[in-house]
Amino acid sequence: MRRHRTAAGILLAVGALLTGGLTAATAAQAATPVASPSPASASASAVAHSASAADQRTARAFWTADRMRGATPLDLHLGADALKTLKPPAPGSTTTTVAPTSFPQAGGPWTGGGAVVKTSGRVFFTFQGRTASCSGNAVTSKNASTVITAGHCVKYQGSWHTNWVFVPAYDNGQAPYGQWTASKTLTTPQWEASEDINHDIGAAVVAPLNGQTLTSVTGAQGIQFNGGYNKQMYAFGFPAASPYDGTKLIYCSGNSSKDWLFSQDHSLGCNMTGGSSGGPWFTGFNESAGTGLQVSVNSFGYVFLPNRMFGPYFGNEAKALYDKAQAS
């Protein structure tokens, strides 16, 4: 888990909790209108980084099954000072098998099936020469090739990640729907400039694979902006730090609230760990269909509030990011 210090010197477990689309059966939801931003949305455009065709070929060859299994959450790659502040999972926070209808749910394997199994996946990349992982989700888009994730899952400590791939429905080293290499990764100008945790949002445009676009294979979830706070939420991801191991799609559910401490983020009871960052948060989630409207991503936690996840509010800046990605 990443830790940041506030101006007051308080340690935060600001976490690299490293985490699509609707299937044909739920195509009606794909038509759900995206909330329009307010007129104040004339904010700075998203920042993008392109990968050449050669870079994409390198990434595709790089990620063998063994390398995917061996990739560790981004937060575990931070310095010794950050690692000293890590806390072990709280008692009782170990993984358990749960029925998908458990609500609220602090963390357990998703056994409900549905579209979310294919639209969500693990994200793999190299960060300063090390193999690392996050999570992500395929969303409905004009280019049918857009993945939403966390900002620190595309760029961190001044460096854009390389060898970036999205593996939907990841299964213990296997990629049942292929490895989708990024032709472009993007983040908000606020994250790019100062790693503002309120805008820890990223996106990737992935190249076609075998002549097909991403969401023609996986389906895509709807996405919503400026949707407000205090809603029932479902969060998904592939946590890879103890007590999890990155092999299963994990979910949390409950009534969300607004962070009353230091950020403008959503808050949700959840014990997901490193590796889940970038995984989607849904409102209006239908457990039977496995579909909802994505309104946030797994982003961070506070060291003094165990088993609580925070995710950025999808406002005008997130809308600008999404618009730039889907137009690429």
Rank of each mutant, 00 (worst) to 15 (best):
M1Q: 06
A7Y: 12
L12M: 14
V14W: 09
G20E: 05
L22G: 08
T23S: 15
A24Q: 10
A25Q: 14
A25M: 10
Q29H: 12
Q29V: 06
A30Y: 04
A31Q: 14
T32H: 09
A35V: 09
P37T: 09
A42N: 11
S43A: 11
A44T: 10
A59K: 02
A59V: 05
A59N: 03
F62W: 14
D66Q: 15
D66S: 15
D66C: 07
R69I: 15
G70R: 15
G70W: 07
A71V: 10
H77V: 10
L83P: 05
T85H: 15
A90Q: 15
G92E: 14
G92P: 11
T96L: 08
T97R: 11
S102M: 09
P104G: 13
A106F: 11
A106M: 15
G107R: 04
G108L: 12
W110M: 09
G114P: 07
V117P: 04
S120L: 03
F125Q: 02
T126P: 03
F127R: 03
F127V: 03
F127Q: 01
R130P: 04
A132K: 03
A132C: 09
A132S: 15
S133Y: 02
N137Y: 05
A138D: 04
T140C: 09
N143Q: 07
A144M: 12
A144S: 14
T146M: 03
V147E: 00
T149P: 00
A150D: 01
A150C: 14
A150E: 03
K155Y: 00
Q157S: 13
G158W: 10
T162W: 04
V167L: 10
P168S: 09
Y170E: 05
Y170N: 02
D171E: 14
N172P: 01
N172V: 12
W180G: 00
T181E: 05
L186H: 01
T188C: 08
T188W: 02
Q190C: 05
Q190I: 07
Q190D: 13
W191Q: 01
S194I: 13
S194D: 10
D196Q: 09
N198L: 08
H199C: 09
I201Q: 02
A204C: 08
L209C: 04
L209A: 10
N210E: 12
G211I: 11
G211N: 10
L214N: 01
S216E: 14
A220I: 04
Q221M: 10
G222T: 03
I223N: 03
Y234A: 03
Y234I: 05
G237W: 00
G237I: 00
P239C: 13
P239I: 08
S242Q: 14
S242V: 15
D245P: 02
D245T: 07
G246A: 07
K248D: 07
L249Q: 04
I250V: 13
S253H: 05
S256T: 11
L261I: 15
F262L: 14
S263I: 11
D265P: 00
H266P: 05
G269T: 12
G274Q: 01
G275I: 04
S277R: 03
G279E: 00
F285W: 04
F285A: 02
S288E: 10
S288Y: 08
A289F: 07
A289H: 02
G292P: 02
N298Y: 02
F300Y: 10
G301V: 08
G301R: 03
V303G: 05
F304T: 02
P306R: 08
N307P: 01
M309V: 08
Y313W: 07
G315N: 08
E317K: 07
D323H: 05
K324S: 03
A325N: 00
S328K: 00
